[in-house]
Design a protein around this nucleic acid. Structure first.
Lengths: 212, 212
DNA sequence: GCAAATTAATGATTTATTCAAG
DNA sequence: CTTGAATAAATCATTAATTTGC
């Protein structure tokens, strides 16, 4: 649960990095001409003042994406192509992908911006199905978990946790295969400030197949 | 927005180090050759045969043009559609846009998924420049701030209100047309833990012109 | 009256938590 | 348990409102 004190001002972390704004031509990124989908339909309704709310609050059709998912093993599918993987449950990274991501992480990357994500995704897609959001989430999660792992370690040095003994290690699951970093983890500087600006969304484009 | 009355100083952080932004306010700087602070060593070493790290960490140009001009009041956007309006820093919603968004909010919408965002954006773009992420952020922020506003209120129940009871809203807009909205400030239906799965990203589409 | 200086809002990001698939 | 996915909370940063000094 959220423990939020009313006026507490944390000021713990800082950020590093300092990418740069995604901007580019900035200011006016216009919609791509290609937007064949919802065009006529929605737009035709001259919603000057009348606004059809109902069209927005659609009942959220249940994900019917249930099919025989080609459970691609953690290997590099030759050219699996990105055929619509129906069983799209959640991303299951391959060893190569993890390796590359960890490599990038160790090299200092923390929160790649949209362009970087796009490129990374492009590269990683050679080893298996993957989307931009997977890359984004991976970095978010990895960063957070490395941090908490570290914190936990530093705390367990001279103290027995009251509950739930956090096992710093467990099953040598699939991770770090070739990048094998014994431990000690990186200690990359993680203290900077003022950075902001990155991310660069891309919300205005949906997969055509996604619609329902 | 005529009411502000409240004198809630939420002082900016200033705890341990009153790190104060001594500058970087020169109107437009952001000049930064941008050198990803990653350890060059790791990268320079031609990583592997098929993977070029450097291609990911590419710098980026940050134009950041500061067009000090047209202080377009947030009113009646000259249906400029997607014309390059002002500086193009951050989204500045028009009254119509805000009105529609609030209407949607009151009607129960909280975290629209990608499709909904797309549609909303399409509609709102008629009243001024807007992107999908703006819509997304708006809902996030609005929801969060309504919540904290409410919490603040509930806390001040048994405490003498200084003065001027904070009127939540006073815009007698004509709504409640379609969806039945439990007026009452929305608070009940907010514990849905089952509504995972939505969002529907769309990261894999960027301008293709600038990708190195 | 106006423009710099403040202050209140609020758009945009990042971090912390939570949920649930595997 | 591990960890991908998603949301909420906390922050940061910029813009519109207001106030203030001339």
């Amino acid at each position: 649960m959220g423990i939020h004190a009313m006026k507490v001002h944390h000021l713990p972390r800082g950020l590093i990095w300092d990418h740069d704004p995604p901007s580019l031509t900035l200011g006016c990124k216009r919609f791509r001409p290609l937007a064949p989908k919802l065009s006529a339909d929605t737009l035709s309704t001259t919603t000057s003042a009348t606004f059809d709310l109902k069209s927005f609050i659609k009942p959220e059709s249940s994900p019917r994406k249930t099919g025989s998912s080609g459970v691609q093993k953690k290997e590099s599918p030759p050219q699996a192509t990105e055929a619509a993987q129906p069983g799209g449950t959640r991303w299951n990274p391959t060893q190569e992908q993890i390796g590359i991501l960890e490599m990038l992480y160790r090299s200092g990357m923390r929160t790649p911006n949209a362009q970087q994500i796009e490129q990374i995704t492009a590269q990683l897609s050679k080893y298996g199905k993957i989307e931009g959001k997977n890359v984004f989430y991976w970095f978010q999660n990895h960063k957070a978990r490395e941090r908490q792992k570290q914190k936990r370690n530093s705390l367990s040095i001279h103290s027995h946790s009251p509950r739930t003994p956090p096992p710093p290690f467990a099953t040598p699951t699939s991770s770090s295969l070739f990048v094998s970093s014994p431990n000690k983890e990186e200690e990359v500087v993680e203290n900077n400030r003022y950075k902001r600006k990155c991310m660069g969304w891309a919300f205005d484009e949906l997969e055509e197949g996604d619609l329902l």
